[in-house]
């Protein structure tokens, strides 16, 4: 085990590992409810492997990042700054936000895009204790019939979906597992 510092734990071979990580991220965003594994980085605690890899795959000096709650440590700040150069900002300016669901709330503080540019919205990377294909029923683009996914807060996510085509998009991360929930997905509580 290598000693974690801000310089270690990045991609060994960035073009290849980032390509694999993005393919998995794209696949889960295109197929809400599907769970994929992503590895490649060794981020400092409390970041999960998959959250750290997503950040290094998607963030750079052009994207602002909000660190919510207990992930907002000096070690994480230095690690992310060294590997991505992403400016760290407050929630209302963030392109990407990372943290637990409780730390990220309230959802209303994030950008949801504008009617002309709905893409200018935040992507939230939500660290979860558990991630599996059970619980809330999902329908919509990318889903054949119905998919199921364990979601942290169904009413809040239903409110987000009701903003469509505006709204935030989500990655749910747990260890090396990732799933996604775009704003286009309709959510029903388990019934």
């Amino acid at each position: 085990m290598i000693v974690q510092n801000q310089f270690s734990g990045g991609f060994q071979n960035a073009p290849i590992e980032a390509a694999h990580a993005f393919r998995a991220a794209m696949t889960v965003m295109a197929r809400p409810g599907e769970i994929r594994r992503i590895i490649g980085t060794h981020p400092p605690a409390p970041l999960s492997v998959v959250a750290g890899t997503l950040l290094l795959t998607l963030c750079d000096p052009d994207t602002s990042v909000f660190l919510a709650g207990e992930v907002d440590t000096n070690v994480v700040r230095q690690w992310l700054t060294f590997h991505t150069g992403a400016p760290l900002v407050t929630a209302d300016q963030a392109d990407f936000a990372i943290g637990t669901w409780q730390a990220l709330m309230p959802l209303g503080q994030f950008r949801i895009g504008t009617p002309e540019y709905p893409d200018r919205s935040a992507t939230l990377i939500v660290e979860c204790d558990d991630l599996n294909q059970a619980g809330a029923m999902l329908t919509g683009p990318g889903i054949k019939g119905v998919a199921r996914l364990s979601l942290p807060d169904i009413p809040m996510l239903q409110t987000n979906a009701a903003l469509y085509p505006l709204g935030c998009d989500f990655f749910f991360t747990c260890g090396d597992k990732v799933a996604a929930l775009p704003r286009s997905t309709q959510i029903k509580a388990e019934g």
Partner: peptide
């Protein structure tokens, strides 16, 4: 060449656009 010609920062920019495109189909 870098893998697949483009530099990594360009690929990240395109990848972010692809994710938003998938989140808002047709936009």
């Amino acid at each position: 060449y870098n893998f697949a010609y483009l530099d990594e920062q360009t690929k990240r920019m395109i990848r972010r656009a692809i994710l938003k495109a998938l989140a808002v189909p047709g936009y």
